[in-house]
């Protein structure tokens, strides 16, 4: 049974309504729209519950500031998940590069060497994972698990305890506030938003980005179409590792220190944010902007919980429940589109 089982379809283009043709073009956006709806509901609900004390310039500005590192990780994770892979190493890579940078700065290495070293360290671990996945047929899960172990161990090799960062260049990233009224933006926030912008450009306006989508849609097809699958897949993991390094920088600036225990379980937060933002874990469908929304949903839930004084434990449970909801919804979408074919 190698023949495709299909229904003979009528090949007449139906004169479709604008709504239908919009859906035909943008069906993949529906989960991301759902994330926007959830975000709006969360914000509105919190605003109503807290009697207008929630959606303030201060809170909303802090939302980006507090989650800049997560946003950067989620962007890298989006690349990997779009190729139908996964990267469990990012939390540990963030810790490793953070403590590495702190150690280098404390040892008197100038910042213009230390920061590129952090980024290169992250990218190198990403490269290792990518090579294992692409050239040694290791499942992404296991390959990135090795990356997780390696980065976490290396973090402790660099230092067993936290290292304060006094370097003004790094602290500037965090302490500077570009203000507009009560709104403000820190350089870390700008870095995170720039990362998003660059990722949007790469994924939607370059052949490399489209190849990422093609691989996630059908790797075999992508190969038969003559696209460079191997290079692109490895690059996705390198990008994720690089983002891990960048997040390490952001987190170091945020906390004013490198700490080898940072980011335990953060990879799960990043995956959850990406999935909540509407990217399918099976690859090929999703948007970086969706991941931005996912991170904001994540951050908003966290803020709401701390405002309500509830247990932080609810955070994990709510995120888990949201993840489940999205997975089941995606499963239904995929099943339906398969049946349609």
């Amino acid at each position: 049974m190698s023949t495709t089982t299909t229904t003979p379809a009528v090949r007449v283009e139906r004169a479709s309504s604008p709504v239908e043709s919009f859906l035909a073009r943008h069906a993949a956006m529906i989960p991301s729209f759902a994330a926007v709806v959830i975000l709006v509901l969360l914000l509105a609900g919190a605003e109503a519950f807290l009697r207008g004390d929630f959606i303030t310039a201060r809170n909303m500005s802090a939302l980006l500031l507090d989650n800049a590192y997560l946003l950067i990780l989620a962007v890298g994770m989006t690349f990997v998940i779009l190729t139908a892979g996964i990267d469990l190493s990012v939390g540990s890579v963030m810790a490793f590069t953070g403590i590495l940078g702190a150690q280098l700065l404390v040892s008197g290495i100038p910042v213009w060497i230390a920061v590129p070293a952090m980024l290169a360290g992250g990218a190198a671990i990403g490269l290792l994972i990518g090579v294992l996945v692409q050239y040694f047929n290791v499942q992404p899960f296991i390959a990135s698990l090795a990356g997780l172990f390696l980065a976490r161990g290396l973090a402790f090799v660099v230092s067993l305890s936290s290292i304060r960062v006094e370097e003004p260049g790094v602290l500037w990233l965090q302490q500077t506030r570009f203000r507009l009224g009560d709104w403000y933006l820190t350089p870390t926030g700008i870095i995170a938003l720039l990362t998003v912008a660059v990722a949007v450009f790469v994924l939607h306006l370059t052949r490399f980005g489209r190849t990422i989508y093609a691989i996630g849609g059908n790797e075999q097809s992508a190969r038969l179409m003559g696209l460079n699958v191997a290079r692109t897949k490895v690059a996705a993991y390198v990008i994720s590792g690089f983002c891990g390094g960048l997040a390490g920088l952001a987190l170091t600036a945020y906390s004013g220190a490198g700490y080898p225990r940072n980011g335990i379980g953060t990879e799960l937060d990043a995956i959850a944010a990406v999935v909540i933002g509407g990217t399918l874990l099976t690859g090929g469908r999703g948007y970086v902007l969706g991941s931005l929304i996912g991170v904001l949903v994540f951050g908003t839930i966290k803020t709401i919980i701390s405002f309500m004084g509830a247990e932080q434990a609810w955070m994990q449970i709510i995120v888990g429940a949201l993840l489940l909801l999205f997975i089941v919804v995606q499963r239904v979408i995929v099943a339906r589109s398969e049946r349609r074919r």
Partner: peptide, 12 residues
């Protein structure tokens, strides 16, 4: 080549 099982990406 055009293969029997359409080798395109349905997500695009």
């Amino acid at each position: 080549t055009v293969y029997q099982e359409v080798n395109l990406c349905t997500n695009l």
